[in-house]
């Protein structure tokens, strides 16, 4: 569904992604873990065109949104990139809900003005999605009156409303109070049961282990290891990963 080849991204002199190559297949769920500043967010943001890669290739369902041929970046029209990125949905750490719109309005905004479906089907779709994330009673409530967990569930519903083929999550629970993390993870787990293709940046180690088909460990802008959850958590190839995980698990328990 998504493939990157030698993806590089620099901010000025700072190289944030260094030759990142990986792919995610249909129905696959991959978690991305690693220390702060290792480039996890930047990787996700490049995939959905919130950042322009410095070099390398990104394919979405086989079609490039960035392409390197013989060491040169090929020009791709913005409108084409945007169309290809519509296959992806994204959920942010701090929700980014529209404060001036109710839960329902947040969800149906893009279906109405981007997908241009009629208002009646949009509302029906919105209500279905609210039901799916367990918030049908918050239909007409503004984000300011929702808890963090509820906000993130609305944000997930909003992303799903555009019927993406792949969902990208950037630390969806990091801004939440501990007691609210569970409700968001439950929604993501349900998506996993429905075989949604997902790429999830997270610090929730037991969750990652439970839902993922494989886990990517990023360090200093590189993929240090990509392997099965069991191997990642029991005996990763790199001692550095073990140190990191020991620290994480100690911290979260």
């Amino acid at each position: 569904m998504i493939e990157t080849i030698n993806l590089c991204k620099s901010f000025g002199d700072l190289q944030v992604l260094k030759d990142v190559s990986f792919s995610i297949n249909k129905k696959e769920i991959i978690s991305v873990i690693g220390p702060s500043g290792s480039g996890k967010s930047t990787l996700l943001r490049c995939l959905i065109d919130l950042e322009k890669p410095t070099s390398g290739t990104i394919l979405i369902e086989g079609l490039p949104i960035a392409e390197e041929i013989n060491g040169k970046q090929k020009f791709i029209k913005e409108s084409v990139i945007q169309k290809r990125c519509r296959k992806l949905g994204m959920v942010f750490q701090n929700f980014n809900l529209y404060p001036h719109k109710t839960s329902l309005e947040n969800i149906i905004e893009a279906p109405l003005i981007v997908a241009k479906i009629d208002k009646k089907s949009a509302i029906q779709l919105g209500e279905e999605l609210l039901h799916r994330v367990g918030l049908e009673d918050k239909r007409d409530v503004y984000p300011a009156y929702l808890s963090g967990g509820q906000k993130q569930r609305v944000a997930i519903a909003r992303a799903l409303a555009m019927r993406p083929d792949v969902m990208l999550f950037d630390e969806p629970t990091s801004a939440l109070d501990p007691e609210l993390i569970g409700e968001v993870l439950t929604v993501i787990k349900e998506l996993a049961h429905e075989h949604m293709t997902m790429l999830i940046v997270t610090h929730e180690m037991s969750f990652a282990r439970e839902v993922s088909d494989s886990i990517i460990f990023m360090d200093h802008g590189r993929i240090l290891e990509k392997t099965s959850p069991d191997k990642m958590y029991s005996n990763p190839d790199h001692p550095r990963i073990k140190t990191f995980l020991d620290k994480m698990i100690f911290k979260t328990d």
Partner: peptide, 23 residues
């Protein structure tokens, strides 16, 4: 206005004009 509002709109497929007008 927080730049997250632009980013959320972009990943939902809105154009700059739509983002300005609606969000």
């Amino acid at each position: 206005i927080d730049k997250g509002q632009y980013e959320a709109s972009k990943v939902l497929g809105m154009s700059y004009f739509q983002t300005m007008r609606r969000i």
